[in-house]
Structure formats: C-alpha cells, structure tokens
Design a protein around this nucleic acid. Sequence first.
DNA 1: CCTTCTCTAGGTACAGCGTACGTAGAAGCG
DNA 2: CGCTTCTACGTACGCTGTACCTAGAGAAGG
Lengths: 280, 280
Amino acid sequence: MPSSKPPTGSESRKSPDAPQQPGKPTPTDAPQQPGKPTPTDAPPPPGKPTPPEAPELIWLRPERTGRGPRPAHSRDSIATAAIGIADAEGLDAVSMRRVAAALGAGTMSLYNYVPKKEHLLDLMLDAVTGEYRLPPAPSGDVRADLADLAHQQLGISRRHPWLPALLLARPSLGPNALRYTDHFLAVTAPTGLGGGARMEAMALFNGFITQFAQFEQTAAAGAKWQAELVGYLGQAAASGEFPHLAQAFATAGPPADPDKAFDRTLDRVISAILTPATDD
Amino acid sequence: MPSSKPPTGSESRKSPDAPQQPGKPTPTDAPQQPGKPTPTDAPPPPGKPTPPEAPELIWLRPERTGRGPRPAHSRDSIATAAIGIADAEGLDAVSMRRVAAALGAGTMSLYNYVPKKEHLLDLMLDAVTGEYRLPPAPSGDVRADLADLAHQQLGISRRHPWLPALLLARPSLGPNALRYTDHFLAVTAPTGLGGGARMEAMALFNGFITQFAQFEQTAAAGAKWQAELVGYLGQAAASGEFPHLAQAFATAGPPADPDKAFDRTLDRVISAILTPATDD
DNA sequence: CCTTCTCTAGGTACAGCGTACGTAGAAGCG
DNA sequence: CGCTTCTACGTACGCTGTACCTAGAGAAGG
C-alpha cells in the first residue's frame, strides 16, 4: 500500500557509511550484490570489527546474521502480534511492552528485532499489505483492475481500522509494498503514461482511498463527537455568516451510502489518472 | 482546511474515555461526509448551563463565561505559543508543559483553557487556517480560484511543516475552517454540482494537497533515509522480481521539480472535480 | 577439543508524557 | 456581605520509548 512518489527535490549525496549486509540477503530481495545501480554506498572498510551505523531502513537489515543463538521470534510473528493488538484495542495500545508481552518476551528483547518503534510500525504496515490478492497479470481492463485494487484496499482498511492513520503518517516500502507497486505499474502500463507519471498516479490513487477510509474511521469512532458536529455545523449554517454552507446543508439529500460515495469519487479519480497528460 | 487524519513520532487515535469502538470483526458500519447522520443531540441553545457534561468540541465551549477572575491568556495566545514551538522544533516538541512554560503559566493552568491536548491541536489547526487570504467573492474562473486555494494551502503547509500530519490526523472544523469551506462552496457553485458532491470534491481537493505537502516534508526530513531508499529501490529493481518497477526506474528522467509535479497533478484533480458526474 | 566472539534475553532506570485531583485565592452576583 | 464560580498551580500516578548493563547461548577458528 505504498503512498509515495518518486523521490523529489534534493538528491542524495554523501553517505558517511552505508554498511552492506555481509552475508545472506533478506529473504525478500534477490541474492544479488549491488553491481552498479546503487549510488548510495561506500565500501565497508575491511577488517573493521563493527559497522558503527546500521541502516535506518529496516528492510535493509538482514533478519538473521547466522551467528550466536537463534532468535526466538521472527519479524512475521512480531508483526502478527502487534497487528492483533492494534485490531483489538487500537493503535495506541501497541506499545513495545505490550507487544513483547504478547510474544512472551521481555520488553527490551524486542529491541533486538526492532531497533525503534517506528520499525515495528513498518513491519505491521507491510504485513497487512500482504493481504492483497494480486492477480498474476493485468486483465487488460484498466478501470476494472484499478477498481479491484481500490476495493481491496478499502476492505483491508476496514479490517484494520488503524491502517489509514499509519499509511498517512509514513510511506511504506516493504517487500509487499514493492509487489503492490509493481502490480500497479503493470496495470497502468496500457495508459501510455511514463514511469514517473504512473508513480504520481499511484500516490493520488492510494491517497484518496486511504483518506476515505480514514474519514470513515474517525466518523465511526465517536457518536457523541459526530452528534455535536452536526449541531455545530447547523448552528454555523444558521448564523448567516456562511451562506453557501447553509445552502449546501439545505440542498443535501439523505445521508448517502458510503460505498456509493466511494465508488462515485473513485470513478473521478480513475478518470483523472487515465486522462492523458495536458502537458508533459 | 478541512480534511481528514496521527502524528508522526508517536501517533495515535482512540481516547481512553471512549474505549468502545467497533470491535474487530465488523467495523463496516460507517457514516459519511458531514451530511446528516444521527440526530442524537442538538446544539445547546444560548443560555444553557453546562454543568454535567461539557461539549467535546472545543468550538462549542465559550471562551469566557464572565464569572470569576479574568483569564490571563486567550485561545489565540495559546495557539500562537504552540505554533511557535511546533514551527521551531516540530510537533513532538509541543507538550502541555512546554506550551504552558512558553506562556509563563503553570502546566496545569493550561487545562483551564484546553481540556485535552487534542483541543490544543484543534486551536493550532484553526489558527493557521486563518492564514488563508480569501477573496471576498469568487472571480468567476473556477480553475483559477481553485488553483489559488491550492497554492495558498501548499504555502501554508511549507511555512508550518507540522501542518499536513495534523490535517491528516483529524478533521478540523474551527471557525476559520468554516470560512474556508464556505468559500470553497462559493467557488465551486458554478459547477452545478450539489452541496454534498461539492463537499466530497473539497475533501478530495484538500486531501491531495495535504498528502503532497506531507510527502515533501517526510522527504525533506532525512537525507540519510532518502539515500537509503534510493539504494533499496534500485536494489529491488535490479533483483528482477519487480520488472515494471525496474522499467519505471529506467524510464524515469531526472528528479522532477516538485512545484511542476504539484501543478501537473493538481490539474488532474481539478479536472476530476469539474467533470460532471457520470451517474447520479 | 577449547577458546573466543558474537549474538540473544532480559532487567533496571530515566526522562518525559498526559492528566486526575486538591488547594488557595480572586472576582462577579445576590 | 456572603456565596458561588471561576482561575492558578503543585503534586502525583501510570504510562511511554529506550539507553545501558548483565548473563549466557552457540557458532567459528584454532
């Protein structure tokens, strides 16, 4: 569920040290030593006992280094535990202590797997992104394929109410997100848009869906809040200070079916994506 | 600047006093856009005392009740202090203690003005929303008016880097947001769309801009992170597992000017809004 | 085999957070 | 003048993320 654009603006420059994982790559990336296309790293000084700085991106850290006792937990099981807590009690209930306890581990042991809490959230994000059922190849009907993706995302977001908030807070780029991205690019290949444009389209597409789901969640969260809101808006409308708001209120029909509203706007978004660029 | 959702660093939703949300299995019930969902409660008529339960919405609480000693601070000064801290040191630096200290007040005194920290954030949100320069009436050129609003929002978001995260975290509906909403409705009146449809359009419009600004912020936040990301993506592309991603990478030109990218997608969004409904 | 070194598990501790609660006094209303 | 209601503020509690430390498990090198 990546909500990112290609990196814009400032380009990468010096990186004092970007330690390359010495042995096995993570199970999700290919057994491959970066030959030429990685401009980001300096060669690790040979013979140095410990690389002083680990990568910030958790996906660049190997899950297992092969030395010492074997870990009692896996990234998968950790993510599953955290997701269970979040599903049941909300994102706020996901604390390091809580997750560690759910795993039957000491609090600080968790830090052997997850250097910061942020990374725990990354694991959760990528785990649920794995819930997509991606067809092996695009069907040929771009609109249908996109609508399917959208409905899957909405479904996942409803299953995990904490998801939208997390997606909006930080870009996710785990292995499953890469898989999703690749599929999206495949689906939109027939549009004739370039790679960068399709990445932007993906950001727009996912952003809309995520925000819709997020709004659903906040609306569902508090009945009292909602009731007060209606009163407040009505009061504002009645004040005469906001004539167009008042008129929109008066014009508004019965509360629309959220699914209908979703499909309606989704249609607009897909159209916006499929429209050939005005200038590129 | 109404839009929808948790803060970076330590984000959250769900409050302790409302531990009841749709459990885990069926959170599918979902209301929708500010229409008219549940008439549970009415706005307090003027003159009604509020001893038993204060409204959750801070805008429904009177700033001053006229009794007792006069407050030493105003909502405005509090919001200004908090915004100053957030601008200088980020949203995480905005704590009740910190804001109170900036005001020269005791920590707990702040709670006389702001019943919960959430409400402090509401005050901040509405204060910056007041930075819009709204013309007295639409110009008649819908596209131009919308583009102006979009660029103003982008400018405000760049001035206050914490804004997008907050905007995405919670809907804001303070007085300034109402003013903005009314203006947006006025601008889009010539489209012939109904009130509800224009509200949806506003959500889409603001959502896109907010997410764009948010992405800019996260990208600008960490150079190291960005460098690692490029390396990671390149590695993924080179792995052969993500052919379309690799191809998009190969096709991608130089990093695009963010302003250009913004205008390009904004154009698409505006077109999506202005397109008459396909079916309704 | 033993040694050595790296890794893991876990405990303790700290600074900071939001905020419940209680007390003291100021200011408007009768 | 009370009476009531408000403001100001200190103390304290439970919680957070996580820095740092101690043991001990187990593979690698001799």
